[in-house]
Amino acid sequence: MKDDVCIRNLEKDFGGFKAINNLSLRVKHGEIYGLLGPNGAGKTTAIKILCGLLRPSSGEAYVLGTKVPDPGMASSVGYMPQELALYRNLTVHENLAFYGEVFGLSKKEIETREQALLKLVDLEASKDVLIDELSGGMQHRISLACTLLHEPQLLFLDEPTVGVDPDLRATFWRYFEGLRDAGITMLITTHYMDEARHCDRIGFMRDGRIIAEGSPQELLELTHTDSLEDAFLAYSRTEGLQ
């Protein structure tokens, strides 16, 4: 099957600092690909290039078969930025309605999808509450709802679980698995190694490139470790020795 994301020899230079350094990866259709690595590894930069917010310095990236940046593919892709990206002085409904309109949804579509999404994230009662008055965890769930509103077939989720309590993190991964079962492809970045076991495949990222890739099981077996954190450290050490 055709890959939904294909990155080849990607480089991104910020005035002498190489945030992305010869990065290549593929995300297959219908899988959850976890991009794991410490802060500053280049995960967010990679996502921003895929979303067309940054231009590659060299190399190329294809999203759903289209070379980015390309404004045409925005409606088939969902992007959840690291920041919550909500209007704090607007209510939940007003935020969803705004993003829905930006994506060209009709009033009716917005209404039905909003209902379904608020049910999914269990916030039906907060429809008319200001974002500012919601707890941090609720805001995260609304942010996810905004990302899903236009029913994208491919999701870029940048650190969706940062600052989220363990309960909600588990809930989020349940959402993600449910979305995958519905046929949606996901590229998720995180620096919480343990939760990456939910991914179909993982890429360990360090200094702007992939240092190891495989299913969680494969990576654990290859490094003879019990946790993905130890596996990452093992690869990180080998990398340092080279």
Partner: peptide, 15 residues
């Protein structure tokens, strides 16, 4: 810019 809403908008069909 700071809340990230601009990122969401620039990654949307909005010109």
């Amino acid at each position: 810019r700071t809340s990230g809403t601009l990122f969401r908008l620039l990654a949307s069909p909005l010109k």
